[in-house]
Amino acid sequence: MSRLNEANVMLAKEIIGRYPKARSATIPLLHLSQQQNGYITDDAIAHIAELVGATSAEVLGTCTFYEMFKMVPVGKYLVNICGTMSCQLLGADELMHHAEQTLGVKAGGTTSDGLFTLEHAECQAACTEAPNMQVNYRHCHRMTTTNFDKLIDDLRAGRLEGEIPVHGTLARVRQQIPADKAAGVASPDAPVVPAWMPEAAQ
């Protein structure tokens, strides 16, 4: 059921084709699967294992290493509040406390309407704009309790649907490598001297 659908299998094969070894596509395919289903299912892992030529246990091992992959369903919007140094210095704890009060869930919980999952997050690479948070990994800088409430209202009302896609969708622009322009994969099994480096051939 939650294997990759036909269109995504096509896409998966295209992604796999960009790497010298299929297993390199594991993380991109897990993202693709999360985009399709909102989270990662066992069936999806088994399917990806088939596609990249690894065992399901290996793909599971990779999947559980990275915190973006959710093995259980999460809310439509994943609200990650950064708690690392600069954000903590500038009020992350207070923001988290406010968020818990506003959403009515503790960090790690999902609201009963399935809209929001609240998480404590680590450094989001926006330290000068602290305190920070992300909604489905879209940065929200210099948060205050007021603009937190406004953000949640906008999300609830569907006013940000054009800007913040549902959980699972990362980038809405994908790389395309046109077949006629591709240089092709550089396989480790085919030791070819780069054509522009004639002197290296000697």
Partner: peptide, 18 residues
């Protein structure tokens, strides 16, 4: 037969099968 593998990360790392 890579049917056992590390699962999770850091202090929560443990061995599992699929």
């Amino acid at each position: 037969d890579a049917l056992i593998h590390f699962n999770s990360r850091g202090n929560n790392t443990h061995i599992t099968t699929f």
